[in-house]
Write a protein that binds this DNA or RNA. Structure first.
Length: 261
DNA sequence: ATGGTAGAATGTCTA
């Protein structure tokens, strides 16, 4: 089974790009982030014609997550247990479904904005909530096949950004954010793509501004954090930088994992 | 030509 994750930066603006990625890479299930739409605004005809089912969660023009699968899509859950709110709103940042025997969650972790912004504290709380949830799931069943897929908005090490000095004083690289990624790893989840892709300059996101993709100035902030059962079943991974090179695509590249469960 | 895109409530926030 081939599973993927992609911050698509508007599903309506890029439905054609999604279909192209699904066709070209023969993806069975993909977790999408920043769909930027309510479910009723989406035209799913072309996905359904290809045999894909869709579960989408979006409240307005911001955030929004979805799962698209041609290997079944069951037991959909919105949000996370005890998920933190922002300004009193439970935002559209998590959706979960069982696809091909894997419990897949599509996650759009809050950006954090500035270090002294309330959004940064919200981001840390959200990551704490996710780790607690993962810990709880594995306590119940250590061999559960789980993937936390998405845009984590954290570069776990200095090697995951094109120039650490550029990010001094900025979010995405601070010790508290990085500690939370390590806590998720200590809970039993590993980014399954990193075992296959660890060369310097391996990134998943390149800012539109300053044409950072053309300059190879990216960040590695998208991951497929996998439980041991999935991680041990992984047979390969790729980051679709060919898609990121396309005209009119997202500022993130799709990340792809093959698993033999 | 000092660098500065893209998407969404069409104006300004978000990333």
């Amino acid at each position: 089974m081939r599973i993927a994750s992609w911050n698509i930066n508007s599903l309506r603006a890029r439905m054609g790009r999604l279909l192209d990625v699904l066709d070209t890479r023969q993806i069975d299930a993909i977790a999408l982030q920043e769909i930027k739409a309510k479910p009723e605004q989406l035209d799913l005809a072309e996905l359904e014609a290809r045999g894909y089912e869709v579960a989408a969660h979006g409240l307005n023009q911001w955030n929004g997550v979805a799962i698209v699968s041609r290997v079944g899509l069951e037991d959909v859950e919105i949000g996370l247990p005890d998920m933190p709110e922002y300004d009193g709103v439970a935002e559209a940042r998590a959706i979960t479904a069982t696809v091909g025997g894997v419990r897949l969650t599509s996650l759009y972790i809050p950006n954090g904005r500035e270090i002294d912004h309330a959004h940064y504290d919200y981001k840390l709380e959200f990551l704490d909530c996710l780790t607690e949830h993962g810990r709880s799931l594995l306590a119940k069943n250590p061999s559960a096949p789980i993937v936390f897929a998405g845009d984590f908005n954290v570069a776990p090490t200095d090697a995951d950004v094109w120039d650490p000095s550029f990010f001094e004083g900025k979010t995405h690289v601070t010790p508290p954010e990085r500690r939370r990624i390590r806590a998720l790893e200590e809970a039993g989840f590993r980014d399954a793509t990193r075992d296959w892709l660890d060369a310097p300059g391996t990134f998943t996101y390149w800012d539109y501004t300053s044409r950072r993709f053309q300059k190879k100035q990216g960040m590695r902030i998208d991951f497929l954090f996998s439980s041991p059962a999935v991680h041990e079943a992984a047979t390969g991974a790729m980051i679709d930088t060919e898609e990121r090179a396309q005209k009119g695509t997202s500022d993130h590249a799709p990340i792809i994992l093959d698993v033999s469960l």
